[in-house]
Design a protein around this nucleic acid. Sequence first.
DNA 1: AATGCGTGGGA
DNA 2: TTCCCAAGCAT
Length: 326
Amino acid sequence: MSSVPTPLPRTGAHAVPHGLHEAVVRWFDDAARDLPWRHPDCSPWGVLVSEFMLQQTPVVRVLPVWRAWLQRWPRPADLAAESPGEAVRAWGRLGYPRRALRLHAAAVELVERHGGEVPADHDALLALPGVGAYTAAAVAVFAFGGRQTVVDTNIRRVHARAVSGRGLPSRSLTAAETRLAEELMPADDVLSVRWNQAVMELGALVCTARSPKCGQCPLEDRCAWVAAGRPEPEEAPRGQSWHGTDRQVRGAIMAVLRAGAEPVPARHLTGPVDLADAARLPPGALRALDALHDLAAPEEQRRRALEGLLRDGLAVAGAAGVSLPG
DNA sequence: AATGCGTGGGA
DNA sequence: TTCCCAAGCAT
């Protein structure tokens, strides 16, 4: 209680400060959100789906889509039996629709190579489309209780501040960060699972990127960043450009394709506005088409964006027009 | 290694 | 309003 605060080790140290794991895990026992993919009865497939959806998309937006997805496709084989386009449509507005394509491809691989089950092995997970180092570790840990070091943006931020005394982690994951995360892992298997979950949750709820709630943090009295006077981040974050980009146009085209089941003539997507010509489209598609043309993107850019979508397999071109992949 | 890739909400 | 950011991945 009234002990002298113990500084956390800097990179290269090997000793984990006494009580660090207990402090964070105890906080988590009380503060953890009740998320459906954390329930004991959630299948590994449910966990895998959640991890795909949570790649760069906030929890609150994932929740309803995740529920509908698991209701409709409760097992990998159920999704694998569908067309990729249906996956993209069900993905809705979560963003980065290529993730839906990869999740579908992963389901196909699970059926073809893993008996329709999600493997517990980290390397087998890593081999799945759309699964990188983070997702492989997260599924191995959260679905199967494995002892793997999970490193996501939340965990990196907690480590950067509490241990390294920096305002924010660097833009890309460094070897030093990975090493530090491994050093901080509890030796005990069961505790290591809890630790991974707890640090991630701490980063998500308390040690947030902007205006962290240090008053609620179980590490406040031993945080290297607080001790250093909460210095500003060293490198200013690179903003994600959006307005006027191909990316914005791609998103608008995808919204048109998702809105209706029928192919959309390419001239509606890349050509000039012709409301009389487009009047036969479903109301939703027409609305999305209006939004696309409201961008006032050059025809050249719309064509380039569509080419990108075709190249990525998010759209296919047939005689009747452009549609989601069948 | 640096880029490109959606979307919406909060500061 | 504008900017930032959210459980990354593939190239």
